[in-house]
């Protein structure tokens, strides 16, 4: 564990009855680092977050937040948390909620600063109940940063936010990261993770499948994505592509190849009337789905 470790998890296991929600998970999050936690539903993201917040007691392993037990008062003081589907008293206004949360901290941000950072200037006096899903997320984000946390835990923060709100959110998160705040983020906007995260962890069925910078993850899957329309039938494609996996529906085909040049040559030879051809580098999303598919196979 390094000196600037914000979160240190070793051998974390959580079991719900027969289901192994987390299985021997280890990770470290350092100050100033933005870690994106990715994985399909049921992969164990929320369980990991709950363990990190002390909301559940793990069956094995150790979790430390700045060296403190998760859920302990010092750990809570240093963390800003934004959970999925957090209800708050719906009859209070955003400003009232922010004031209430400000009172929990010794050295909270000024209300106006929080409101500006969360981009909710126009919402501050509206009751929570009257806000849209994305606006509610913005208010919850405000509550998370109110105490100037050293560790920011964000569970699908941008869910439902419009494009401006999302931009504001990431600007603030990045600014905080730049000031040394450790950020743990779960998101299903993979391009966000791609763009923002220093490190990505792919979680599936309680295990870490892959870990590294977005580029490292991507490089695990060298090659390109190829899309085209063809008159070839499924059978012909199968014989032609051999081991290469592909998606096919009516006349559209999508595949990922490590040797795109060779494959393209044979494709064009087999069907000179091939249309709408696209070739591009593989995305993180592709990399992840290919990784999870691989893992499942």
């Amino acid at each position: 564990m390094s000196d600037d470790s914000a979160v240190a998890i070793e051998g974390l296991s959580v079991r719900y009855g027969a289901i192994q929600a987390l299985d021997d998970v280890a990770l470290e999050l350092r100050e100033g680092q933005l870690l994106a936690l990715l994985g399909p539903n049921g992969a164990g993201k929320t369980t990991l977050l709950s363990a990190l917040l002390g909301l559940l007691r793990p069956d094995g392993g150790q979790v430390r937040v700045f060296g403190h037990r998760p859920g302990s008062l010092p750990a809570r003081c240093l963390s800003g948390v934004m959970l999925q589907n957090s209800g708050v008293p719906e009859l209070l206004s955003a400003a009232e909620l922010i004031d209430q949360f400000r009172s929990y901290h010794n050295d909270a941000m000024a209300r106006e600063a929080v409101i500006e950072l969360a981009g909710i200037e126009s919402l501050a006096d509206r009751r929570f109940a009257t806000l849209s899903g994305g606006q509610k997320q913005q208010v919850l984000f405000a509550l998370a940063i109110v105490g100037r946390p050293r560790l920011l835990l964000l569970d699908e923060p941008s869910n439902g936010m419009d494009i401006n709100a999302r931009a504001r959110l990431w600007r603030t998160v990045q600014a905080m990261r730049d000031e040394g705040c450790a950020v743990l983020l779960t998101t299903h906007y993979i391009e966000e993770a791609d763009r923002l995260a220093d490190e990505v962890i792919l979680l599936d069925r309680g295990r870490i499948l892959a870990q590294g910078s977005p580029n490292q993850i991507k490089s695990r899957l060298s090659g390109s994505e190829i899309r085209f329309r063809t008159r070839m039938g499924l059978k012909k494609l199968q014989t032609m592509l051999g081991e290469v996996q592909f998606e096919f529906s009516s006349d559209r085909c999508r595949l990922i190849s490590a040797t795109p040049e060779r494959l393209l040559a044979s494709l064009l030879q087999a069907d000179p009337e091939l249309t709408d051809l696209e070739v591009r580098p593989v995305s993180l999303e592709d990399a992840l789905s290919s990784l999870t598919l691989e893992h499942a196979a």
Partner: peptide
């Protein structure tokens, strides 16, 4: 300004602020 420095010792809400928190 966005992230408070790590406190060197003593964590948790200042007792003086506890009353304020209770009030809020």
């Amino acid at each position: 300004t966005l992230t408070a420095p790590l406190p060197s010792s003593g964590h948790g809400l200042d007792p003086r602020r506890m009353a304020g928190a209770l009030g809020h």
